[in-house]
């Protein structure tokens, strides 16, 4: 059972609106998967379906090889979850809520709880209604990280955290990763995904548009090229794999498909290359492409 999560062709409608068209991806044991996509893409909806909070309308979703809707009880014993919006009872203190969650989850570690409260610098004696957004998020995180689980599902876990706390969070996740636990991490923050994730799944308008390791995804994108040649550089515009071509001060600037680099180089050498600069694609470019298009 090396697959912790297996989703195939998952669909979900809210009335007439289709939130998930076709969601397919897997999370393997010991893997940290970054789940990214623009607002309203369907990340939280996918996650809620995985947790049996809502019911999928088609396709299948399994965790630990069990059906997420029918066997949710069995699944829930071994997972830990932080919702995208941590909403707390205003009248309870942060400490009370963490204790309550740990107890109802079962298998909590009191020492770990206290240590996390210290690390995240949370005042557990304050009523939840006085907490800021970041502090509410900390309550959800501490509760979820203090219990034993094989799979962690975190929906935008660092939203509202300041950079210092984000660093603490990343260290904690790194620890869990080291223990061989699987993590599904939805996020908008690039550096977070880059640092933690082994694999990235990109969702847009309810469809998975890209899946793979960071390396694989980088490969899919275009490099930015600056080229100066002895001959007329303008002919390069018609070479296959060249995009957004422009000439400035005799320098050609364009994007090149990574799989066409060889051909482009061959063409360029015919003109006599004076200068060739290639900037590898950043993940940023990749994300922006998916976020904007």
């Amino acid at each position: 059972m090396s697959e912790m999560i297996r989703i195939e062709g998952l669909k979900k409608n809210f009335g007439k609106f289709t939130a998930l068209h076709d969601v397919t991806f897997t999370v393997k044991a010991g893997e940290v998967v970054g789940f990214i996509g623009p607002n309203g893409a369907g990340k939280s909806t996918t996650i809620r379906t995985l947790l049996g909070i809502i019911k999928g309308d088609g396709g299948s979703a399994k965790i630990f090889d069990l059906d997420v809707w029918k066997d949710s009880l069995e699944i829930h014993k071994r997972i830990s979850y932080v919702p995208g919006d941590v909403a707390l009872w205003g009248g309870f203190t942060g400490g009370e809520i963490i204790d309550l969650f740990m107890k109802l989850h079962g298998g909590g570690d009191q020492a770990k709880r206290d240590q996390l409260i210290k690390r995240f610098e949370l005042d557990p004696k304050k009523k939840a209604k006085t907490y800021s957004k970041g502090n509410r998020q900390k309550v959800g995180l501490i509760a979820a990280l203090s219990v034993e689980a094989d799979l962690y599902i975190l929906d935008e876990p660092t939203s509202g955290l300041d950079p210092l706390m984000e660093a603490v969070f990343q260290e904690e996740i790194a620890k869990i990763k080291k223990e061989g636990k699987a993590i599904l991490l939805s996020s908008h923050i690039l550096s977070e995904v880059e640092r933690l994730a082994d694999k990235v799944v990109i969702i847009r308008q309810g469809k998975i548009v890209e899946t793979g390791t960071l390396e694989e995804l980088r490969h899919l994108t275009r490099s930015s090229i600056t080229l100066t040649t002895e001959g007329d550089v303008a002919v390069m515009e018609n070479v296959k794999g060249v995009h957004d071509f422009s000439i400035k001060d005799g320098k050609a600037v364009f994007y090149a498909d990574n799989e066409s680099i060889n051909e482009i180089l061959l063409e360029a050498t015919k003109l006599g290359v004076k200068k060739f600069e290639s900037v590898p694609p950043t993940l940023e470019d990749l994300f922006m492409r998916h976020y904007e298009a």
């Binding site: 049996g52 909070i53 009880l73 829930h76 109802l104 989850h105 959800g140």
Partner: peptide
Amino acid sequence: ERMHLSQLYATKIT
């Protein structure tokens, strides 16, 4: 509706 129970749905509580 206020999402107070979200995190509890994901526990062994049925």
